[in-house]
Amino acid sequence: MTKPMKPALNRRVAWMHAMGIALCLGIAPTAQAFKDPMEIPAIIAPKAAKALMLNATAQGSKVVLVGERGIVLYRDFAAGAEAGSGAKDADGRVWTQAKVPVSINLTSIRFSSPNVAWAVGHDGVVLKSTDGAQSWVRVFDGNKANEQVVAAAKKKMDDMQARFDAAKPAEQAKLEAELEAVQFAFEDAEAGARFGPARPMLDVWFKDDNQGWVVGSYGQIFETKDSGASWTLIADRLNNPDFRHYNGLYGDSTGLLLIAGEAGRVYRSTNFGQSWERLDTGYNGHFYGTAVTRNDKGEATVYAYGFSGNVYRLGPGAAAWWKLQSPTKESFVQSFTQGTTVMLVDQKGRLARTDTAGTGLSLVSQAEGKPVTGMAVVGQSVVLSGQGGPRVLDLPR
């Protein structure tokens, strides 16, 4: 049996991996002692626009992508002809690489206003930009997250132990399993913290520049109310006792928040995260995101999408989710709404769209070839993130 690598060796392997990526991106690495990627700024790379990009978003005419080794690219699609210096994508479009304080894979990005943006990624990192994604600062990370996770697990264990000690013998027998579960959860949290900031954040959404949420692996969900200056673990508000991953986060101005998670679960809040309910869809696989359309009464239809092309729909007043017939077996990775329809992209870059009734789903474009991780819409174009950097398609009509 192969023995697991020690954390120090893991970090050494990570450094070797970073040097390999540096060579691929056209950078000549210099000999130096290993440093934590969370402390190494992303290297400005001549071939950054051909790197693996993991997510994309648009703000006005600007598109921003995040990806491996802390690479953040942005481009103003209203700028007209190609001009100036920067990294060129496979089609010759020029992208500017942002200044980023970490060289960690970044998984998602959102704007909360035209100039304020947020990005999350591996090692629990949360970044903030106040200049339209040109430069970034780290406002949270997995070390700080681990502190809160351990403290919350210890409090839960201590409270359960006190309850157990105060109970009569007959009641103690009933509480024993619960006590063992919280003790195990505390030990697991401590073990995770000793390993380091290894748990990624996977999505982010802000209602304004001050209040927002990040979600990630193993049931992580944190909230800030002071523009990222401090963060609070709110995992106890959600019914997720087995610490399933939270893969995608949706929010809108009505107070609706949705989390797409493992085991076919969707978590819903209608009051900006103060309370939550778990919606079991009847599906047992992974959901990667949700989308919402509203009718002329403002009532929401929720779509949950993910692994192997699965899409489920919950209409206004419906008691159960309904599965749409999917035209692809590839996983859907991101979506955007167009009026009462939803456009989704699968991991091969094919676009699918619901009909106006929300009950049908059909392909509207062909496969792009290289793996796709997300998309952003700007004007009449769709910008795909994925292997080989950004790619631009015409928006299907």
Rank of each mutant, 00 (worst) to 15 (best):
95 W>P: 08
284 N>R: 11
75 R>D: 10
273 G>M: 03
171 E>Q: 14
91 D>N: 12
243 F>N: 14
265 R>T: 14
127 L>S: 08
43 I>Q: 13
327 P>N: 07
262 E>Q: 08
394 D>E: 15
80 G>K: 04
110 R>F: 04
363 L>R: 01
207 K>T: 14
193 A>L: 02
119 A>K: 02
86 G>I: 05
96 T>Q: 14
248 G>K: 02
304 A>P: 07
255 G>P: 09
180 E>F: 10
319 A>G: 15
281 T>G: 06
180 E>W: 01
44 I>Y: 00
304 A>T: 06
293 T>A: 10
153 A>I: 07
164 F>E: 06
83 A>R: 14
384 L>K: 02
26 G>L: 05
159 D>M: 04
357 A>R: 12
128 K>Q: 13
300 A>V: 10
56 A>H: 04
33 A>G: 15
132 G>P: 09
200 P>I: 07
369 G>W: 06
32 Q>H: 14
112 S>C: 09
13 V>D: 12
110 R>W: 05
76 D>W: 05
50 K>F: 00
256 L>C: 08
118 W>P: 07
240 N>K: 03
58 A>R: 03
327 P>Q: 03
397 R>M: 08
361 L>K: 00
318 A>P: 03
388 G>N: 06
143 N>E: 14
21 I>G: 00
183 Q>N: 15
68 E>W: 00
396 P>Y: 09
97 Q>H: 07
88 K>N: 09
258 L>C: 07
393 L>W: 11
319 A>M: 03
187 E>W: 00
78 A>W: 04
190 E>W: 00
146 N>M: 02
